[in-house]
Every structure is written in structure tokens, then in C-alpha cells.
């Protein structure tokens, strides 16, 4: 089992609903976030393009954050989900520095926090909160090993990319382009 997410940049409108839903679902304090929206404009008037991406931890198969964590707080869960065990985390921030995607933040309560793919929800058979709320239904979540999962089907059908592939992290968040 390898959990992954595919996000359709052609449908995302950058509304940030995914950000608010994550905050209320996961008690992310106002002023912090586990996911965020990036908008890139290309070209000159009137030949323009925008790519909008909802970004979060890539749950890298080859995760520098896990390697750099001195206490083992950052670790892999079943399905390749990278999480932080709060009470093992000493807040040293080594992982924050090692993540090429800036996906982690220091929680005011003294530990490092980031996207968990809403592990607590997937365990109950639900979708991650961001996927469930997205008004454009542009996010697909599922198991890469299951050819019938939403994510596998989208990756088969569409062109996609990952972020900073040259970092060799093997991200599990794909962007449909």
C-alpha cells in the first residue's frame, strides 16, 4: 500500500478551502498551516498562463526529514505516510531545514507539525479533509498499488509532474497538468 494524492491544477481555483478545512480538522492554529496554495503566472499580456497548486507534505518515499530526525519522532506509517510523534519530538527543527518543500512548521506547543494525509480519517475509511471539502473536486487520494483507486486512475489518464524531482525525494503528491 502506497498512499498518494493527485491534484488537478486545471481545475483548482486557488480558493484555499483546503487550507481552512485542514485547520479546523487538525487544530492547526490560526497563523499556521499544513497546506497552502501557490499560484504561478507565466507569459506576458495577453499570452498568459496560471498554474495553481494546493501544496502540502509530499510524503516522500525517500524522505530527508525522516533521515535527519535525531529522535525518530519523524517516521513512516503504514502506506508510506510520514508523520511526527508529538511527544517524541524535541522541536530541534532538523527536519524543517532538511525538507526541500518547506512543508513543516513549529507548532507553538513545542513540536513540529505537518500534513498527515489525515491519517485519523483514512483509518476510518474517510478521505483527507482537504480532498473532501474541495469545491472543484480537484484532489484525488488513494493507494498507488491499487489500479482502481482514484489516484491511480487519474495518473493513468493524465499528464502529471512532481515538485523538485531533482531532490530525489520521490514525492507522493502528483500535480495533473
Amino acid at each position: 500500500m502506497r498512499y498518494a494524492m493527485a491534484i488537478d491544477t486545471k481545475k483548482c481555483v486557488g480558493c484555499s478551502d483546503c487550507v481552512v478545512a485542514c485547520q479546523t480538522e487538525n487544530d492547526v492554529p490560526v497563523g499556521y498551516c499544513r497546506d497552502w496554495v501557490v499560484e504561478v503566472t507565466d507569459g506576458t499580456y495577453p499570452q498568459l498562463e496560471i498554474e495553481i497548486r494546493s501544496e502540502r507534505c509530499n510524503h516522500c518515499e525517500n524522505a530527508p526529514c525522516v533521515r535527519s530526525c535525531p529522535t525518530g519522532a519523524s517516521h513512516y506509517e503504514a502506506g508510506g505516510i510520514v508523520t511526527v510523534t508529538e511527544n517524541k519530538c524535541i522541536g530541534c527543527g532538523a527536519c524543517i531545514v532538511s525538507c526541500p518543500y518547506d512543508a513543516r512548521y513549529s507548532h507553538p506547543e513545542g513540536y513540529v507539525d505537518k500534513c498527515t494525509f489525515c491519517l485519523h480519517r483514512i483509518q476510518k475509511g474517510q478521505q483527507p479533509a482537504c480532498v473532501e471539502v474541495c469545491p472543484t473536486k480537484c484532489m484525488y487520494f488513494g493507494d498507488l498499488d491499487d489500479p482502481n483507486s482514484d489516484v491511480s486512475k487519474m495518473l493513468k489518464k493524465r499528464k502529471f509532474k512532481t515538485l523538485i524531482p531533482e531532490a530525489g525525494t520521490k514525492p507522493h503528491v502528483y500535480y495533473l497538468i
Binding site: 484555499s16 478551502d17 478545512a21 479546523t24 471539502v133 469545491p135
Partner: peptide, 22 residues
């Protein structure tokens, strides 16, 4: 804690917008 959409609602089909979620 949180507000989510009602799946049966034709105005939102179970998905509130960011303002509704917030």
C-alpha cells in the same frame, strides 16, 4: 469545532466553500 457541507444539499453537494468552512 468545524462545519462541513450536507451531502444532500443541492446548493453545496456536501462541500462548503472556504468562507463556509471558516
Amino acid at each position: 469545532k468545524k462545519i462541513t457541507g450536507n451531502d444532500e444539499d443541492p446548493n453545496c453537494n456536501g462541500r462548503l466553500c472556504p468562507r463556509g468552512t471558516g
